[in-house]
């Protein structure tokens, strides 16, 4: 093999190693920082792991929101209106559009009692937005609801993070 070819071979091997390394790291680290989403029935049935960071969602059950009078602690129940429901505990400020009956996403860990200790509560940000995770729940629930004629507010559908930790 002439030196020029040898050099090119080394370069190619090096590039492949770098690309492979980066890919492996990407998969590894994204695996570690991935939050799975679970609907209420998975949380209740025990499909959702205890003590791991995850996302769950559901509708806030009417009359279930209890505010602490001392601090910003709050508990509420999320339901799929089909019999599965679980409690959420959270300390902090709830999103502007957090209301009873509304679809909500929470991020946090399940404890041994089946209560979700939330670190983040995400609500839809305007009347027309539904977190995609909850879209299926919603459609299963009210299949006859007609499509909205005009979907206004095209550009505002992020669930605003209301994290109690610094989100920057």
């Amino acid at each position: 093999m002439n030196p020029k070819r040898k050099q090119r071979l080394y370069l190619t091997v090096f590039l492949f190693l770098v690309a492979g390394g980066v890919t492996a790291l990407l998969i590894q680290i994204s695996g570690e920082n991935m939050n799975m989403f679970y609907p209420p029935k998975d949380v209740v049935s025990g499909n959702a792991p205890v003590g791991e960071r995850l996302r769950a969602g559901g509708m806030v059950m009417d009359g279930s929101v209890i505010r602490s009078t001392q601090n910003l602690g709050v508990t509420f129940v999320l339901t799929d209106h089909q019999g599965a429901e679980f409690s959420v505990r959270y300390t902090g400020i709830l999103p502007d559009l957090f209301r009873e009956g509304q679809g909500i996403l929470v991020e946090g860990q399940l404890n041994n009692d089946g209560v979700l200790e939330a670190t983040e509560v995400l609500a839809k940000h305007d009347e027309n937005y539904m977190p995609p995770e909850l879209m299926e729940l919603q459609t299963a629930e009210q299949q006859q609801t007609p499509e909205p004629v005009m979907s206004a507010y095209p550009s505002s559908s992020m669930p605003l993070p209301q994290s109690s930790s610094d989100d920057s």
């Binding site: 570690e32 920082n33 939050n35 799975m36 995609p132």
Partner: peptide, 9 residues
Amino acid sequence: GRISIGTPF
């Protein structure tokens, strides 16, 4: 299934 990849990543 649905996942989200957060800031730590």
